[in-house]
Amino acid sequence: MHGKHLISVALLWAGLTAVGELLVFADLFPTVGSHEAEDFDSIFRFLLILGIPVFTFVIAVVTYAALTWRIRGEAPDGDGPPIRGHGWIPRIWLAITAGLAIFVMIHPGLTGLAKLQSSATAYGWGKEEADLEINVTAFMWQWTFDYPDGTQVSVSKGGEVVIPVDKYVKFNVNSIDVVHSLWIPAFRMKIDAVPGRTTFMTVHPTRLGDYREDQSYRVQCAELCGLDHGKMWLPVRVVTESEFEAWLASLKPQGN
């Protein structure tokens, strides 16, 4: 008595999954501005590909059951078969769900984490020697970016953060008052700015970009920090190395 229903649900599941998987092709992400963003997008897509069938399986069973086995009269005309779910069905279910969970845990979970923490474009430990180290100080409600030769690029409206393309750029992040969070959506990277400790993250921008054309190029505070938290952001511009040197040089007379 299961056969017909199993086939129908399987077809419904396949159909819903086929439609659902189209989401993978949708324009979901901001601009891919760095190696880290490529990793994020591919892992996100992978999880989406795996997650959609799980979701549509539940939807298929619930929808099919509600349409097929609903009581049409005013009151139940009898009870359903007393299936208790002993035996092999729950065990197989447990094995499949546990297998899926452990699979996702290992890949992309732990493998992604390992890449994040060990490779040159790292989160946390970072590359031993980055090409450029920028000291970031967060405060209510702006940022100060200090470049290696002491240039203070700050803060108020009108300023912008400029970084060179194809370099390992490491941000050493501090806060002088409350917890903030340094986030650049185009790079998919984020690290909290915590008073009393220095946190860091490294990014490797792969393409030129400018906030004026693309709003995902910005430094945004992502941890609630009080009154003007929503306004605590700065434009970011990724430029070629020569442009970067020129920009840094142009700041020096005024900067110092």
Binding site: M1, H2, H5, V58, V61, V62, A65, A66, W69, R70, I71, A75, P76, D77, G78, D79, G80, P81, I83, G85, I89, P90, W93, L94, T97, A98, L100, A101, I102, V104, M105, G109, L110, L113
Partner: peptide, 28 residues
């Protein structure tokens, strides 16, 4: 990460119970 993803295993059993119960039921 590991501990968090383990939680999906017992949560999956809740779904097993729900979906198994409606299967071939008389849904009122």
């Amino acid at each position: 990460l590991v501990a968090t993803e383990l939680i999906s295993i017992p949560t999956g059993l809740i779904f097993l119970s729900a979906l198994g119960t409606i299967w071939l039921g008389r849904l009122w």
